[in-house]
């Protein structure tokens, strides 16, 4: 049995005529320790999907099982890293991580909690910034705190909602490597959402494209059997990498052109007007 399972999950927002079906018949099964990347255009319902797994919203139809148990509401067993960091701005780095640790391990003593929090802050290389407030950190540092906070809860599964999309390319590259290292060490199951094919190719065991909302479903999955750790520069010459990458991009372009075809129906007739001449 799969570790995380989504069975015929559908979700729509709104009611009556303004109802939009975002996700339709989503089926997914993730094995323990697997790294899954879900890739899609913006607005394709990716965040809705991750919120469903996190339990922040409930599916209209279908069910989501973790370890065979249906998910009821959010919980620290699914560590989530939000797209916009979601750090509490009045707590410093240590406080943000420590708050989560305190909630998840209430029986621990103060020292044990502090050691645990510091271990994860150190894992994301932020020990020098332990006492800093989020406002004093750069985007990449904030995101690392967010990752540390999620990991410190010792979750069974790590959900990453476009964690790197707000960052510049250089910071992105560093953090991708860090995420892979942490994944290799912690042996956590990871579901990551991204809009970057290369990022998915570098990190994932499987890449699953999400078609566009409304009624978004999964496209064909791509399995990446490239040895780890994957070297970014070496990958560029790997024939398998090139093959898979090209087919994913081709697939995404196809979905993309579908939208453009759809938008052709929206033809506006412009009024026959001429500018007034002032003579």
């Amino acid at each position: 049995m799969a570790f995380l399972e989504l069975k015929n999950v559908s979700k729509s927002y709104g009611k009556g005529s303004s109802k939009t079906d975002v996700l339709k018949n989503i089926n997914l099964s993730v094995e323990e320790g697997e790294f899954i990347c879900i890739i899609g255009f913006s607005g394709s319902g990716k965040t809705t999907l991750i919120s469903l797994i996190a339990g922040l919203i409930e599916p209209d139809e279908g069910e989501i099982l973790l370890n065979g148990q249906p998910i009821k509401g959010p919980g620290p067993d699914r560590g989530i890293v939000f797209q916009n960091y979601s750090l509490l701005p009045w707590l410093n780095v240590f406080g943000n991580v420590g708050m989560a640790v305190k909630k998840v391990f209430p029986k621990w003593g103060k020292d044990q909690r502090a050691t645990h929090s510091k271990k994860y802050v150190d894992m994301v290389n932020l020990t020098p910034a332990l006492e800093k407030l989020p406002a004093e950190l750069s985007g990449g540092m904030k995101q690392r705190v967010s990752v540390a906070r999620a990991l410190a809860m010792n979750p069974e599964i790590l959900l990453l909602d476009e964690p790197l999309s707000a960052l510049d390319a250089l910071t992105r590259g560093t953090l991708q490597e860090e995420i892979e290292k942490i994944w290799a060490r912690e042996k956590k199951t990871v579901v990551m959402i991204t809009n970057d094919v290369d990022e998915g190719m570098l990190l994932a065991d499987r890449i699953i494209p999400l078609k566009l909302a409304p009624n978004a479903t999964f496209g064909p999955e791509y399995r990446i059997n490239i040895d780890r750790p994957r070297d970014k520069t070496a990958l560029n010459n790997n024939p398998e990498f090139k093959k898979i990458r090209n087919s994913i991009i081709k697939y995404l372009m196809e979905i993309g052109s579908e939208i453009q075809d759809n938008s052709k129906d929206l033809d506006f007739t412009l009024p026959d007007l001429k500018p007034v001449e002032f003579n």
Binding site: P76, I80, S86, L88, M153
Partner: peptide
């Protein structure tokens, strides 16, 4: 987002108010 953090951590109502909503 802050409320979501409180929800993921399953804070009870009192802690949610004192640790997240009020600050």
């Amino acid at each position: 987002d802050f409320i979501n953090v409180a929800r993921v951590l399953r804070l009870n109502t009192w802690n949610k108010i004192v640790k997240v909503v009020l600050p």
